[in-house]
Design a binder for these strands. Structure first.
Length: 302
DNA sequence: GTTGAGCGTT
């Protein structure tokens, strides 16, 4: 029997529902219709956190265990640009890829009180597809606070959008990079990252599964009671640092990754006292990565 | 039931 299954291009995109065939298989051509160039599917095995490939024969994809279930499958492309880089270490392009222009959440100021997430999508889709939109509201009344956040899939769309003012339902609105993202490039180094803006439905396993694609996750810690943040520790500090400053969408929530330092006092693993020069001797002296618009100022106090 | 600079429940 035919069913709709969830497929996404990358795990932090919103999935698209696409139909299988009557015999339960899924045609690669069906996948490619939504994801041009896609040649296969994979999915995250919840037990191991690893990717599993979907069996493919003569253009037909076969459900892993009889049925496709409700999990999200990921489209696979030929020669996909890999993000985690064992062999990519020697390829400078791989590294700089992460420091390259990537989309981040954008704050939208001055929204009409009545504007909703849907309104944001309707307006901003003229620049490109939104993978995230949110209107900040009073938790009690639900009344909009007059600002929100959006995120594009495509960096060019973001650039275009940032370059102008926006008339949304009769009001001029400004779109900028949020201040909270400014600490993107310069961060101290640790194997552990702080994941802000978590929601309660994001479990430790969700975090592990999500972040495992960037490098081996060796620990996930979610404070109890719920405090809307979490810590994720990687085996490789480079991976941790590479993620800092980024926004990631997990289960529809945009979380923000920074170094795990602001508060201090963590149970497991690293104590981040960066008092001496110690702590962070990963690799050679040159820390490369000349940030294009370098902000060499390191905030010390606080 | 109002409002109009801001920055996302560390």
């Amino acid at each position: 029997m035919s069913q709709y299954l969830y497929v996404t291009e990358s795990e932090n995109d919103e999935p698209i529902e696409i139909p299988s065939e009557e015999d339960g298989t899924l045609l690669v051509s069906t996948v490619a219709a939504q994801f041009p160039g896609a040649c296969a599917l994979k999915y995250r095995n919840p037990e191991t956190g690893n990717f599993r490939g979907i069996r493919l024969n003569e253009g037909k994809l076969f459900p892993p265990s009889g049925s496709w279930g409700s999990q999200v499958y990921i489209a696979v492309f030929p020669k996909e640009n890999k993000r985690k880089g064992d062999e990519g270490v020697e390829n400078p392009m791989v590294k700089s890829k992460r420091m390259e222009k990537k989309c981040s959440d954008l704050i939208v100021l001055g929204l009409p009180w009545k504007s909703s997430e849907e309104d944001l999508k309707k307006y901003f889709c003229q620049f490109g597809e939104l993978v995230f939109s949110q209107v900040k509201r009073d938790s009690k009344t639900g009344q909009s606070k007059g600002f929100g956040f959006i995120r594009f899939n495509d960096y060019d769309a973001q650039v275009k959008c940032l370059s102008q003012r926006h008339m949304i339902d009769g009001r001029w609105c400004d779109v900028t990079i949020p201040n909270s993202n400014e600490n993107a490039a310069q961060q101290s180094v640790s194997r552990k990252v702080f994941v802000a803006r978590c929601t309660e439905d994001i479990t430790a396993e969700d975090l592990r599964n999500y972040f495992n694609r960037f490098g081996e996750v060796i620990d996930v810690f979610i404070p109890k009671p719920f405090r809307s943040f979490a810590f994720v520790t990687f085996s490789d500090p480079d991976v941790a640092r590479g993620l800092c400053g980024e926004d990631h969408i997990i289960k529809g929530t945009s979380v923000h990754v920074t170094t795990a330092a602001p508060k201090g006092g963590d149970k497991f693993g690293n104590e981040n006292r960066m008092g001496r020069g110690g702590g962070a001797n990963f690799g050679r002296g040159h820390m490369g990565f000349g940030p294009p618009v370098g902000n060499p100022v390191q905030v010390l106090s606080k």
